[in-house]
Amino acid sequence: MSEPLVFHFEVDVSDFTSAGTASVTVKKNLRQLGLPSDVIRKLSIAMYEGEINMVIHAEGGTADVIVTEEYIDIILKDHGPGIPDVDLAMQEGYSTATAQIHSLGFGAGMGLPNMKRYSDEMKIDTELGVGTTVTMRIWIR
């Protein structure tokens, strides 16, 4: 077993349109590792949605991508308001994004559902007023 690789990113809220840059970098790195393109695609969509979520709801946070020989974990950690009702938030189309966010074409209520769809396992740890950590795993084989 070789040491897992870690890619660490600060997801910055300052420029809304630049959200998604971490997933682009991760995608390039994964291509260099020679991972199959379906794995890369799943990961980049799951991570992109997570990044956008952090920017919309939590004023940014950190993203860590851990690559092992068997799987890739994405850990998205923010210090936002927390999710009051996780089951409700997981429903397709449910969104608490502001009208302003909607006008930018985001907030369709597909963020968390897509993260679940494109990852193989997903876990949400959230506490109101403290923050949320989403961990997603994608198996390589």
């Binding site: 260099q32 020679g34 991972l35």
Partner: peptide
């Protein structure tokens, strides 16, 4: 057909090692 020009090594474990070294 797709040409993986950016791939570090055909061996995944070796690619992982190289990526860690690049970082």
């Amino acid at each position: 057909s797709y040409v993986p020009v950016s791939r570090l090594s055909p061996n995944f474990r070796e690619s992982m090692r190289m990526m860690a070294e690049i970082q």
